[in-house]
Design a protein around this nucleic acid. Structure first.
Lengths: 175, 175
RNA sequence: AGACACCUUGUCGA
DNA sequence: TCGACAAGGTGTCT
């Protein structure tokens, strides 16, 4: 079997309140975010969290993603960056290098395929991830609890989301 | 009086459909291009066409330009290239040497100053030249008539632009 | 190795 | 319509 999952990020104002999400089905998804971050960190983190959530599975993993930046970072550019000391073509340092190194590690030994899906064309799974990432960003913007999702069966939710979920919930207004 | 003018070039895809433009004010500007050329030929040609358009004027000429290549070709490198038989520092032939020789000739006896302006910072005259050069390149890409501009008062428009303007215009579809 | 310019692609938004 | 976040490349010179 192949696990088919969508990953997406969101950043209101970019940079601004930001979110990430991965989605397999309504029973298997996760989301999180930050008070302020970039769209691309959201995109990378969505992929990274998906890889970690499925790290114990034996199945192949197909990642649907609308960010060529995230896809090519993992599939095309990573090798060259490592070889050249995490420098890009113009000699300047690669951005978001910490997350990218974690992605490199998380990809080791995995059978992962990326499929680019164009954004905003009504792709069902991409939209499911998109709305959850945006909802997370909006929750951070409003300083409200973040719907972090069920996660993967038998796996604890991620650190970031767990912290957010553990945050005290605003009590309902009495009357 | 000093004539203050901006010169700029554009090349879609570089090399690709390309344009040049110079701009003094909305009543004095010109543009042209080619189906395929380089960004640097566009930059050089913009300066050359400006020099030719203003060749009969007695005023000083201040050329605003964002290309250090074009500026230094005219002000720093030209003398050494001539002396060494149009060879670069590495001994190889200077590129675009025909245009550069025409620039050398057009600069003889002129009081010309170049001022470098950084691109994309909202400099008004640079942007006016930039948009006209890009519009010319886009016209060549779309095989549509090129807006060649009014030119300099009393001066015929340049050869390239005149040819483009003389090209048969697509007649409106008669339904 | 450096500089300037020209772009190409995708996303995130206002 | 506009900008930010990210990457890739070519055109040219010193």
């Amino acid at each position: 079997m192949t696990i088919r999952a969508a990953a997406d990020g969101s950043a209101l104002g970019n940079p601004g309140p930001a979110g990430w999400a991965w989605y397999v089905d309504d029973d298997r998804w996760a989301a999180g975010g930050w008070p302020r971050n970039t769209n691309n960190v959201g995109e990378l983190t969505a992929v990274l969290e998906l890889l970690r959530a499925t790290a114990d599975e034996d199945d192949d993993l197909l990642i649907l993603c609308d960010s060529q930046y995230a896809i090519k970072a993992c599939t095309e550019w990573m090798a060259g960056w490592k070889r050249k000391g995490w420098r890009k073509a113009d000699g300047k340092p690669v951005m978001n290098v910490e997350i990218i190194k974690e992605l490199d590690e998380a990809l080791q030994g995995r059978r992962v395929t990326f499929e680019w899906v164009r954004g905003h064309v009504g792709h069902v799974m991409n939209e499911a991830a998109d709305i959850r990432a945006r909802t997370a960003a909006e929750a951070y913007q409003a300083r409200k609890p973040v719907p972090s999702g069920p996660g993967w069966p038998g796996k604890p939710v991620t650190t970031v989301s767990a912290e957010a979920a553990a945050a005290p919930v605003e009590p309902p207004a009495l009357f």
